[in-house]
Design a protein around this nucleic acid. Structure first.
Lengths: 166, 166
DNA sequence: GCGGTAATACTCGGATAAGTCTTGTCCGAGTCCTTATGG
DNA sequence: CCATAAGGACTCGGACAAGACTTATCCGAGTATTACCGC
């Protein structure tokens, strides 16, 4: 039961992109520098986000990344799926069919009780993450920061962000 | 987001031990053979269960494993903790303190919005698994099997189980 | 025949390798901006 | 002075290693059984 660090980085990155004005982008290196993480590895995860359709990118000078949809329509679960994939954490290997008392395959249409219980738990996990959007992340971050820090962020953005076409 | 195969094996193993009569034990090799899994690796996970206090073991001839508590008092979450540990799947590295606009450490007493959301989701996951006990696993398996298979299991147990002192 | 003892067989237990996935890095492909040049 | 085109600089994009963790295995520690020997 472990989540890769890319999930944490990606959520923070998307939160930062959420406060970016329309028509502006942020290069991968700038995003990495803002969070103090390795630029190349951050870029790798941004590509995963792009393949999943969460962010959009522009190449060349004055290129960068920006959100592809409104922050309110992107949930934390969307980001987890983009980075980690849709495969469930619990993988049933159907060991009930093994061994001397193994069940016949045709008797295993329905998932076994063990798998069903874990799938239910993961469903609760998914539902919880699906109910949280990037807007919630932005408001939570705003509530935990003072005016000084907010203006520092605004200044850094104005200095770093670049204009990019959609 | 991935769970080791040891969790699945351990839950099935504990379910099998749940139907074992009082005063009897099952050797690790027998448990592995019943589920068709590598014996040495199954034994490794059984040791984790023993260290967690879920099962009790007897060495030497006629030795083996047995549950240490009633099946109704052992939840799936107990088994997950025994195998995978208590560490949360989402590990916050406090990247909000990094970079040019990093927050000061004394302003980070409370977890950030990202971590808090993931912790809530994992709480839902835990609660779901905590509400399922080994008794539920036994009844679910019983409902999905016919009389023929149940008697086959009973026969195999009588042939394989051994008497062990507590 | 019976009790004691030593050998034995069987089991757990922790220490030890191989495989796979996450983590981390690099260089090439592509695009826009700049600048020089000619009309 | 303006249009154009070539060059350059900057960014994304996917291919390429290093490290960590899961998976898998083996042999030593420990205990009940069992056979043997003496009484």
């Amino acid at each position: 039961m472990k989540l890769g660090s890319g999930v944490e980085w990606s959520v923070h990155a998307c939160t930062l992109l959420s406060v970016l004005p329309e028509g502006w982008s942020l290069p991968a290196e700038a995003i990495a520098e803002y969070h103090g993480v390795p630029p190349a590895y951050m870029a790798k995860h941004l590509q995963s986000l792009r393949r999943a359709g969460l962010v959009s990118s522009t190449r060349g000078a004055a290129g960068g990344y920006r959100l592809r949809h409104p922050p309110a329509s992107i949930s934390l679960w969307d980001i987890v799926v983009a980075i980690e994939g849709r495969a469930p954490a619990f993988r049933c290997t159907e060991i009930r069919q093994n061994g001397p008392c193994g069940a016949r395959p045709d008797a295993c249409r329905a998932p076994c009780g063990v798998a069903a219980s874990f799938y239910r738990a993961e469903q609760a996990y998914r539902d919880s993450l699906r109910s949280v959007s990037l807007v919630d992340m932005v408001t939570a971050a705003a509530e935990q920061s003072d005016a000084e820090k907010r203006s520092a962020i605004a200044q850094w953005l104005q200095k770093t962000a670049v204009r990019s076409e959609a």
